[in-house]
């Protein structure tokens, strides 16, 4: 086919197009789906007994704030990555809150070490974190994939990694409302570890999840 014929064919397909909303609007739309899902799972699993105490614990609140900020900035970065021509610095938006989150947990580990010695660092298997985060994150994750597919797949690996980080960080935020595990080392290894693992798996699946529409035939 000649390029001129292709242009005629594409112009023939011209019709009013519903434009993609601004990334912050898409972030709000995502939260409209993700937050009720998260709240529903927390209620189904029953909120932890000591939730009232935890809400007055500055360290717990700060860690939760960092996890939530990681989720929000990662979602924003994921939506920005699907819009051609936007600045690249937006891709690293979740790095500061993620660093703060890991840093807070790291400081918690050091403080425990200093106060109680190596024996104080309570470390044991806590396998429930993985299915817990997957369960809370599945709704936000599916919504995220559906929304990422509406953007331009310029960087499939990056977009899906950011999207997965958003869903998994939000899931961990929700998990800590019903899973009473606050030891810094445990949270760092089992919860943040799960978030990182899911982000890496999503990044690997990125080229299959987010593709060019005319190539993928959608």
């Amino acid at each position: 086919m000649q390029t001129d014929d292709l242009i005629v064919s594409l112009a023939g397909d011209a019709r009013p197009v519903r434009r993609l909303a601004a990334p912050w609007m898409r972030l709000l739309s995502w939260l409209v789906v993700a937050v009720p899902w998260m709240v529903a799972v927390v209620l189904i699993m029953s909120p932890r007994q000591d939730l009232g105490d935890k809400l007055n614990d500055p360290r717990w609140v700060l860690e939760q704030a960092a996890a939530l900020a990681t989720a929000l900035t990662a979602a924003m970065a994921a939506f920005c990555s699907g819009v051609p021509g936007r600045p690249r610095w937006e891709h690293v938006l979740p790095l500061p809150p993620f660093a703060l989150w890991v840093g807070l947990l790291g400081v918690g580990c050091v403080q425990t070490w200093l106060q109680a010695g190596p024996e104080g660092l309570d470390f044991r298997p806590d396998w429930i974190c993985f299915p817990g985060i997957v369960f809370v994150g599945i709704g936000p994750g599916v919504a995220m994939v559906a929304m990422l597919r509406r953007g331009a797949p310029l960087a499939p690996v990056l977009s899906t990694a950011l999207g997965a980080l958003a869903a998994a960080a939000l899931a961990d935020f929700g998990l800590r409302f019903f899973h009473a595990q606050d030891a810094s080392l445990m949270v760092l290894v089992w919860q943040v570890g799960t978030v990182v693992l899911l982000t890496m798996l999503a990044a690997m699946a990125g080229p299959y999840v987010v593709r060019w529409r005319h190539v993928a035939g959608r």
Binding site: T3, L6, D13, R18, V83, P84, G85, A152, R213, H214
Partner: peptide, 27 residues
């Protein structure tokens, strides 16, 4: 032709408040 098809496929991602050429050249 590949680029033209791609522009067509993702034309909804263009923000009319921004200039066209940076959007187009990235794609």
């Amino acid at each position: 032709q590949d680029v033209l098809l791609s522009l067509h496929a993702v034309r909804r991602t263009y923000d009319p408040a921004r200039p066209l050429m940076p959007w187009l050249m990235v794609i």
